[in-house]
Simulated assay, not measured.
Amino acid sequence: MSAPVAVIRLPHGPDGSSRGFDPMSPRFQALGPTSLSSMVSGNTTDLEQEQQSRVMLRERYLRSLLAMAGRPVSFTMYEQVNVTALFGASDIDILNFQVSELQTPLGIQREALLRCSDVIAYSFEL
């Protein structure tokens, strides 16, 4: 007999028919980007500065992914598991890493996908 699966429903938005959230609600402001308060107050210089910082950090991260290609990378995973592998690629949303020769405590996997949500940190030699 199969087990029933709960269905998660998103709450209705502020107008009753949409699935969006009120940008002025305390929950949205607490979980939303810090630039939201800058947009509401009209301070565009803070917003532009934050966007430039995000652009710089995103570019550095993408360059690090390019530099890792074909190199041995050490991954620190949850539950204090450390694995090493040859980095291959990442999907477009950077949700998974494709690796080769994954050395785990249980043995070596020739090819594998690592979920980015399971990775705490990674390091590699330049």
Rank of each mutant, 00 (worst) to 15 (best):
R27D: 14
F87Q: 03
A69E: 15
Y122H: 06
F87S: 08
P26M: 01
H12T: 14
E59F: 09
F75L: 03
A85Q: 01
T44Q: 09
L113F: 06
L113M: 13
S38G: 08
H12R: 14
G32I: 01
M68S: 09
L95C: 09
F87C: 03
L95T: 15
L57M: 15
Q49M: 14
L36V: 13
R58L: 09
D91K: 08
Q103T: 09
R27I: 04
F87M: 01
T84G: 10
E50Q: 02
A67E: 10
Q98C: 11
A6V: 13
P14Y: 04
C116I: 05
N96D: 11
L114D: 04
Q51K: 13
D22V: 06
E50L: 06
Q49N: 15
G88N: 01
F87R: 04
Q29A: 01
S41H: 12
G13L: 00
S100G: 10
G70R: 10
A112I: 02
A67P: 12
R110V: 11
A67M: 13
F28G: 02
L47W: 13
G13D: 05
E59P: 06
N43W: 11
T84H: 01
D46K: 10
A85L: 00
Q52K: 11
L57C: 09
A69I: 11
G32F: 06
G70I: 06
F124Y: 13
M1C: 02
M77A: 10
R27Q: 01
Y61N: 10
L10Y: 08
S41V: 10
G16N: 03
A67S: 14
F97H: 02
V81F: 05
E48K: 15
Q49G: 11
R71D: 14
R54P: 07
Q109L: 11
L102F: 01
V83M: 01
N43A: 00
D22T: 13
M56L: 12
L126V: 06
S2D: 15
S35R: 05
L66V: 12
S123M: 03
Q98R: 08
A89V: 04
R71S: 07
L126H: 15
G20L: 13
M24Q: 12
G13R: 07
L57P: 04
S100N: 08
T34M: 09
R58N: 06
V7I: 12
I8H: 03
A121S: 12
V99N: 00
A3E: 13
E79A: 15
R110G: 10
P72S: 12
F28H: 05
M1D: 12
G88T: 01
P23G: 00
E50A: 14
R9S: 06
N82A: 11
M24L: 05
V119W: 03
L36E: 00
D118V: 00
H12L: 15
T34W: 00
L106N: 08
V73K: 00
E48P: 07
P26T: 02
Q103R: 09
R60C: 03
N43K: 09
V81Y: 03
F87E: 02
P33W: 09
L86Y: 15
E50T: 14
T104Q: 03
Q29S: 00
F97P: 00
N43M: 05
A112T: 00
T84L: 06
N82G: 04
P11N: 06
S2Y: 14
Y61Q: 14
E111M: 03
A3T: 13
A3Y: 11
R63Y: 08
I108G: 04
M77W: 12
M68G: 08
R110T: 11
Q109H: 15
G20T: 11
D15R: 12
V7Q: 12
